[in-house]
Structure formats: C-alpha cells, structure tokens
Design a protein around this nucleic acid. Structure first.
Lengths: 198, 198, 198, 198
DNA sequence: TATGAATGAGCATTCATTCAT
DNA sequence: AATGAATGAATGCTCATTCAT
C-alpha cells in the first residue's frame, strides 16, 4: 500500500483538478493553477500523473466510481422496485447538489480524448443503464411493473434525471429541480394519459 | 438583399465549421482547417466572422434555429397532443440522424464562452421546454392527459429524447435508438406501474 | 502633364498619408485607413503607389521638398547673413507650427527602409547643411562672422532648431518654443562666455 | 538579492534586445531573433518580460539610466562650468561611439507605445535639460557666462550634440564628428559674430 | 480607372512538459 | 521525492497586396 503522504498528495491534486477542470473545462484549465490549488509544485503533478490528459481521465474515473459507490451503498436490496427508483432519484439529487463540480465535468467533457477513454465512459454509461434495467426487470418479475421494455424505461429514467438536474448544475436555479423530482417520478410511474386502456 | 455569392461563402464556412467543430471540439478545431474544408482562404473566414469564437457561436445559433424551424414546420396544430409528442420524438430522431455533427455540438460545447452566449443557450432550452409544456397543458385541458405537472413532463420528455439519441450521436449504435422510440413513448404515455392506484 | 483629376487623387492620398503616418508611425499605419481618409478605394492607393513603403517614401520626399522650397523662396539674397539665419529660424518655426504632422515624420522615421532611401534622406540633410554652411562662409567672407569652422556652425544651428522645436511637435508645450528662438539665436551669435578673449 | 544566474539571463536578453531593436526597429524586430542572440529559448524571454513591448521599454530605460550614470559619475563638481560642458560633450561622444546601438534606439523610437512611456521619455529629456541648465546657471552666478537665458543655452547645447553625433550613429562617417566637437564648443562658447556689440 | 473581396505569409504569445538541482 | 526555470511547438489573427469586375 502506498504511504499515506503519497496518497494524500495524489488526492489533493485530484481535488484541485476537479475544481479547476469544472470551472474552466479541460482546455482552458492550466496545470499550474491545479498545482497551486493543490499546494504542490508544478513538477509534482507530473510525478503522480504522466500528463494533463491522464490527470483529467484519472480524476474523471475516480469521480464516476465515487458516484456509483454512493449509489450502490445507499441501496438496500429489500426495497420495492418503485422505492428503489425513487431512492436513486433522490440520491442522485443529493450527489449532484454536494458535488456540483464533479457532476458538471461528467456531463460536459466526454468527447475529447482517445478511444480507450471514450470506451470507458461509454461502458460506465452502459453499466449504469444495466443497473437500472435490472431493477426494472426485477419489478416486472415481481409484478410491480407492467411488462414493458426495461431498456427503454432505463433510458427514460436516466435521461429524466439528467434533464431535471442540469439546471441545478449549470444555472443557479437550484430550488426548482428538487420540487420536480416527485412529479417527474409520478409521470414515469403512472404515465401521463388520462384513461388507461387496460 | 445579399448577393448569392456572399451568402454562399458564409454558408460554406458555417458548414465546414459544423464538421470540424463536431469532430475536434472548439479548442482543438483549427481555423485553417475550417477554411480549407470550406475551400476559402484563412483570411476569408475573418471577413465573415470576427473571431473563431464568433464563428462558433453563429454556427451554433444557426444550427439551433434550423432545428427549431424543422420542428415547428412539421407540426400541424390539429393533431392530438399524444400524436404531437410522438411526432416530435420522430422528428427529433430524423434530425439527429441527418445532422449528427450539428446535434453533437449542441450537446457538448455549452459551457465555454461568455455569459451572453450561455444565456442564449439556456434561453433556447427554456423555449423548447415551454413549447413542450404548452402541448402538455393543452393535452390536460383537452382531457387527453391526467392533471399532471406539465413542467415535469416536459423535462422527462426532453431528457428521454436526449438519453435515447445520444448513442446515435456518440457511438455507431444507430439501430438500437430507433427501436426504443416507441417503447419509450409508451412508458411516458402509460407509465410503468402494473396496477394504477386510481 | 498629368490630368488634374489624376494629380488630385495622388495629392489627396499623400495628404491622408501624412496624417495617418504621423499619428501612427509607419508600421502601425494601415493602408486602408489612408484610403478611407483620402476617400478612395484601397485598390486605388496601389494605382498611384506600388506599395505602402513607396507611398511613405514619396510622401516623405514631397514633404522635404516642400520644406526646402518654403525656406529658399522666403530667403532674399540681399539680406545680411545674420538676418538670413534669423529668418531661417523663424521660417522653420512657422513651418513646424503649420505642418506639425509632416515635421513629426521627418524627425522620427528615418531609419527603416532600403539603402537608397536612407541615402536620399542623408543627402537631403547634407544639402540643408551645405546651404547653411554657404551662408556662414558668406558671412565670414563679408566679415560679419569670425573665422570659425562653418561646418560646425551649421551643425550647431541645425541641431539647435531641432531641439527648440521638438517640444512643439511632440508635446503640446508650444508657447515655450517660440520664446526661446531669440535667446537661442543670441547664444549662437554672441556665445555664452562673459569675457571675450579677443 | 537575485541569484547571479537570474540577473545574467535578464542582462543577456537586454543586450540582445539592444542589438536587434537597433538594427530592425521595434516592429521589424522578432522576439525569436532576440532569444536566439541571447542564447535562450523564446519562452524564456517571457519569463523575464511580460511582452515584447515591456522588453523594449525596460531595455530603453536601462539604456538611458546607464547613459545618465556615465555622465554624472564622470563629472566632478569642482570643474569650471566651461570645462563641465566640454567634458559632457566628450563623454557624450565616447558614449555614442561605444554604444552606437543604444544611442540609435534612444534617438528613433520615442513615438510608439503608451502615454506612460512617452511621458517617461519626455521626463528624461527634461531631466537632462535641467542638469545642463543648472550648469549654465552656476556659470552665470560664478561670472563665467554672460547673463543669458540658461534654458536656451541648454537646448542649443543638447541639440548641437545631437546634430554632431547623428552621423556617427546613422552613417559610418565617424571621423568627422570627433573633429567637429571642439569647433562646435568654440561656437557655443564664443559665438559667431566677428565684432561684439557690447 | 477604380474598386474591395479574397488571400496567406508572418509573428507574439501561451502553456504542457522536461530535467537539473 | 519535489521543484520550478527553461523550453519551443503550436495557432489565432492582421493587413499588405492582388485581381476579377
């Protein structure tokens, strides 16, 4: 295991990177500014990361893992599937509120970088969708949900979370988002049509 | 009225800009490459746009206007609200399929640039949401839809479109998306719960 | 002889060039600005002058010739040599006051340009010195002046004019210069020592 | 105290700047050429100076200070005023001979640059004139000089030095100048008139 | 003759990365 | 291990000049 000092410095740099990358975007961010914020020398950044790009990607991946861990840890398996989805929405809201910077990065700077990294990001997206899909499938199996296309539901659910919380990340309009979580969940659960053709 | 030649060159540059910006992103894109692709001299770009940034923003706005026009023109007012939403989803699919490059840009490069431009992008988002909200409200008034929070529905709908079509834009997985449109619409219309607690 | 219209346009361009070059210096001056000020198209400048450099040099030479002509025309040969020098000083003052822009250019932008042009400027300087030297020599011959080195006097005289009038050109301190003409002439005529060792 | 290495590099760059700016003028001079001549990387120039303009101005000011220091250090206060002026002329000659490049710059490139810098240059001129004026006033008080306008004498003296030594700087005619120093001083001291009207 | 749209050579400056200490 | 001085590749933009009209 790495010595604590080493870990510390690496983490300090990543935390600084989150702040700077989220404010400036990848290309506008300056390695020197990250180093200053992390209170280390510019050369030290290169002791821990081989390049600015690697630093970005490591930071990105760490952020994503942190998000997924937060989600999984807070989700007990004995909840109803409806409740699980509701929990995920609220956990997502909490995460986005607490880690705006991190959330912003994961929503904007996917596109650059090499094929490997894009694949990683894409795989993560697939993994998250798969997790949602399993919950839906479980709900269908349990008879909680209609016999619907679970993939489609997963996409609608994930997209809805994105659309709900982007104002929270990009503007300062952070009251509205919270109040829309319940109505949005209601829409997904109940649909919008007035009369169900059962 | 502008001479056709003038318009032509401006449009050629914008089309080239769409291609280059979408492939490389704003910062990696080179003005010279755009000029070459447009088959004009580098200086000519600056005859029509005062800077790389202005070129990007003009291109972005033109793209958005083109998208909204496509949407509005293809939407006749005497359709049912359910049908309208269905139409919008399919028009969106068609637009994204035809103008991948343009769609990619509108989904990635919001963040940079000055406050004015960010406001413009945000206002456009608000306008699109408002359009959707009006359709929902009309549907509620007509008794087509339940008495739901129309804002929430608009967000769910817009987010779902985004999530559905991002694979189409970012990966080559362009079959999957089309097949998920109908199921996703079904989810939004009917909800996912097996038994409605009426 | 050129048609008046042609002459007119050439002169308009030169006059505009004087203004722009004097305000901005050679490198900062823009051909387009000169064209606009002359109220002609940018291409028209190139009908009359083969390049920006040629325009500058032609303008410069025309200014110098104008200066020398002013000097010579106003100098009647039957004046005493002392009076001639006094007249030159006052003519110089008048010229510099009236044509600040032109004067500024002749005092600043000697250095650039090709060998031929530098030689032309240097020859002009020599010509002006020679003119002064002849007046001094005539004064010595007439017994007006001591048997001094006429070359040295010419240099002292010319340098003094330059030093006297540069504030008039470069700052707005244009009162001072005029009042110093007579005292400066007195110094050159009488010297500064209290007791002459005759 | 700065480390010698730091000072060294800064000085190397300034010395290279003197050479390149004097040969090419400000606008034609290339930062890269200065860097090459100073045997440092192009970026290093920007470690020591924030811009090409700042480099020019710092070099200019350093040159002027060097000139004034040379003058003041070599001037002992117990000399006669006549001797002081004579000394100044000869020191000026020596300076101009040794530092042609520096001298050339101070005589040509005043005009560009911001108001602050022009003021600095103008103030320096005023300071030099004031120094001369004090010597003249002292000479008048001591009875060495007539009761003349000391300001006018200062201008005549300074202008004469400029006119005497400009061939030395701008052409290769460096013999002539030296031989004219004594005759020119004689003119200023004794005047040119044959018979003094006392 | 007169024009100005089009051009592209040319350069200051930035900043990721290196490496001697 | 940690540093930051030094580096130079990389690029947006300007503007003198051309040439089709």
């Amino acid at each position: 295991m790495d010595r604590p000092a080493e870990k510390d410095k690496r983490i300090k740099i990543i935390k600084a990177a989150v702040k700077v990358f989220s404010r400036k975007g990848f290309h506008q961010a300056r390695v020197e500014e990250i180093a200053q914020l992390a209170d280390v020398g510019k050369g030290t950044v290169y002791e821990y990361f081989s390049s600015k790009t690697e630093l970005f990607q490591e930071m990105f991946k760490a952020g994503i893992r942190f998000y997924l861990d937060s989600l999984i840890n807070d989700l007990s398996p004995d909840l109803s599937c409806k409740e699980k989805l509701s929990r995920i929405a609220r956990l997502h809201l909490r995460f986005v509120s607490n880690y705006k910077d991190l959330a912003k990065i994961t929503m904007t700077e996917h596109t650059y970088f090499n094929e490997d990294f894009r694949k990683w990001v894409w795989d993560y997206r697939a993994k998250k969708l798969e997790m949602l899909k399993q919950i839906i499938d479980e709900g269908i199996a349990r008879g909680e949900f209609r016999n619907i296309d679970s993939q489609a539901v997963a996409l609608v659910f994930m997209g809805s979370l994105g659309a709900l919380f982007s104002p929270l990340i990009f503007s300062d309009d952070n009251i509205n988002a919270k109040d829309l979580v319940e109505p949005a969940l209601d829409v997904i659960m109940e649909g919008i049509l007035a009369v169900k053709e059962q």
